[in-house]
């Protein structure tokens, strides 16, 4: 049973409005963070992780160019953008291992658009950290691209950023 905070009458669990007074009750079903860590991940935004800037390439970039970018910048993934600068795919280290494997020389001139992971999950830098954790945990990714309102990439959040955030959080809680 849910008690209406306005009029005190009882309602069925999960209803949106109080039967007696019409007061909205939907906010009562939101989870309440119990610990400091829970509060932090639902309060802090991805921008507080200071995610690294996006490294992008066009759809026609070749496999050789993209592999060289990953190595030169020590990156886990390159974001693929179309001619309007909108995010259309991701090419990660894991894509390289699984799709190129030992045929790098033969595939060197193929465009990255044939091998990338198309339509990747993305977030906005003002979204809460909990969303990035959720996406990474469910999808098994290590990187989530960040995009702006126009769909252009602004950065990448990595699992390592999240770990660093947690170690910082735990250290500050301990002291």
């Amino acid at each position: 049973m849910t008690l209406c905070p306005a009029c005190g009458s009882t309602n069925i669990e999960g209803v949106d409005y109080c039967d007696a007074c019409g007061q909205t009750l939907s906010h009562l079903d939101l989870p309440v963070p119990a610990t400091e860590v829970e509060k932090s991940v639902t309060r802090d935004r991805l921008s507080t992780l200071q995610p690294r800037a996006a490294v992008t390439c066009g759809l026609n970039a070749t496999v050789a160019e993209v592999l060289a970018m990953l190595v030169a910048h020590s990156l886990g993934c390159v974001l693929v953008v179309d001619h309007d600068g909108q995010l259309v795919g991701v090419f990660s280290e894991r894509d390289a291992l699984h799709k190129i494997n030992c045929s790098a020389a033969e595939m060197a001139d193929r465009p990255v658009s044939e091998l990338m992971t198309a339509a990747p999950q993305s977030l906005h830098c003002e979204d809460k950290i909990a969303y990035a954790i959720h996406k990474m945990n469910l999808g098994g990714y290590r990187h989530v691209p960040l995009i702006d309102e126009q769909g252009r990439p602004t950065g990448v959040v990595s699992a390592r950023d999240i770990l660093r955030y947690f170690t910082g959080l735990l250290a500050s809680n301990a002291s």
Binding site: P31, P33, A34, E38, D127, K128, A130, I133, N137, A159
Partner: peptide, 25 residues
């Protein structure tokens, strides 16, 4: 692995992670 740790962390606060609204905004 990093993913194993993330999964372990999520285990510790499933309430706020698994019940997130479907869209962030």
């Amino acid at each position: 692995t990093v993913s194993g740790i993330l999964h372990y962390l999520v285990d510790h606060f499933p309430q706020v992670i698994y019940t997130l609204p479907p869209k962030p905004r």
